[in-house]
Design a protein around this nucleic acid. Structure first.
Lengths: 171, 171
DNA sequence: CCATTTTCCATATCGTGCTATATACCTTGG
DNA sequence: CCAAGGTATATAGCACGATATGGAAAATGG
C-alpha cells in the first residue's frame, strides 16, 4: 500500500457487513506487516505466521496435526510453516519409535533463544500498539473496525511499533 | 479447514492482541469462502474479491488507480482483478482520447445484470448472516472477535448463508 | 525543445490462508 | 495374514493481500 491515507472514500469500509472478508484480510495483512517490520528491526527474520507456531511449541513438542488443531489452521499450512522453521534451524524433529506417520517437532536451542527474544522484545510492543489501536469508545464491531482502519491509515502500524520502540522499551 | 470445531484450544485466539493479524486473515478467509459458496449456489461464479470492484463501478467508470484508492487496495491487486473481470466479460475498457496512461473500465451489460443479481440475491443474505454473527453483548474488539470465531466454529459461515437461503429469501 | 522527473499501469514474485489429492503408514476384519 | 479402510503428512495449486520494479506516457523545467 503506497497510499498511506485511506481517504473518506474507503468503499470496502462503507459496505459494512458486506465484503467484511476483504476488510479482515486487509487488516490482517497490515498488522502482520507491522509485526514483521518490528521483528526485522530487532534482528528477527521470522515471518509473522511463524510466531504462533513457535509459541505453540513452547511447552513441548507437537505433531503437525496437533499444531493444526491447536492453531485452528489447515494442516498444509502447518506443514509449510514447519518446513521454513526447519530450514532456519529453529525447530527439530523429535525422534519417534512408535507411529511412523507422525512427525513431532520441538524448539531447537536457537528456536528457544529466538522465542525468548520475541517474547521480551517484540510481543510487549505489539501488545501495546494493538491495545492503543483498539482503544476508544467501545461500540459495535463495525465501529471497532472503522476505528482500526482509520487509525491505521493515519499512522501505519509499523510506525506505531517503531514509536513504541524508541519511546520506552529500552528493555 | 477440515476441523469444524475450534475447540477450547485456539492458541491464536488465546494470544489476544498478539498474532491478531493471523486471526484477521483467518476470519477474512472464512467469510470470503462463505460468500463465494453462496454466490455459487446462486449461479454466480464471481470470486469474493471481485465483488467490491463491481460495486465500485456501479456509478460510472473508474481507472485502475481510482479503483485502488476507492477500495484502499494495492494497484497490482486491482490490475489482477480487472483482468479476471475482463476475461469474464463483466467489464469493458472505456475509450479514452486523452491521457494514454489511463485505463478506465465500466460495467458491461452482463456486468450490470450480474451486479443487480448480486445485490438482490446475495448481499441481503450476507448482510443478515454477518449481522447475526456480530450480535451479542457488545464488548471490546477482542470480545467481538472471540464471538465471531466461536460462532463460525459452531456453525460455518457457509451454513449460515445456506440457512438464510432456505429460510426466508425466496425473493 | 529536449532531458528529467513524475505518474500510471503491468509484471514478477512473495506470504499466508485455503482445498484437493497423493502417499505412506497403521488398524481392523475376514 | 493379507486386503480394505482409516489416519497423518506431503504435494500441487488457487485466491488474494502485499512490495518491488519496469516501461510508456505525461508533465516539468532549464
Amino acid at each position: 500500500m503506497e497510499n498511506g491515507n485511506a481517504k473518506a472514500t474507503d468503499l470496502i469500509a462503507e459496505l459494512g457487513f458486506l465484503c467484511l472478508g476483504s476488510r479482515f484480510r486487509r487488516l490482517g495483512e497490515r498488522l502482520q506487516a507491522g509485526v514483521s517490520e518490528l521483528a526485522g528491526l530487532e534482528g528477527i527474520t521470522l515471518q509473522p505466521a511463524q510466531f504462533p507456531i513457535i509459541v505453540a511449541l513452547e511447552h513441548g513438542p507437537l505433531t503437525v496435526g496437533a499444531l493444526a488443531r491447536r492453531l485452528d489452521l489447515s494442516q498444509p499450512g502447518i506443514t509449510r510453516g514447519i518446513g521454513k522453521l526447519l530450514v532456519e534451524g529453529l525447530i527439530e524433529q523429535v525422534e519417534n519409535d512408535g507411529d511412523q506417520r507422525l512427525r513431532a517437532f520441538t524448539l531447537s536451542d536457537a528456536g528457544r533463544a529466538l522465542l525468548a527474544r520475541v517474547q521480551e522484545r517484540v510481543f510487549p510492543l505489539v501488545q501495546r500498539a494493538v491495545a492503543d489501536l483498539c482503544e476508544g469508545p467501545a461500540d459495535d464491531l463495525l465501529g471497532h473496525l472503522t476505528r482500526l482502519d482509520h487509525a491505521l491509515a493515519m499512522t501505519p502500524f509499523e510506525q506505531r511499533l517503531r514509536a513504541m520502540l524508541s519511546e520506552g522499551s529500552g528493555s
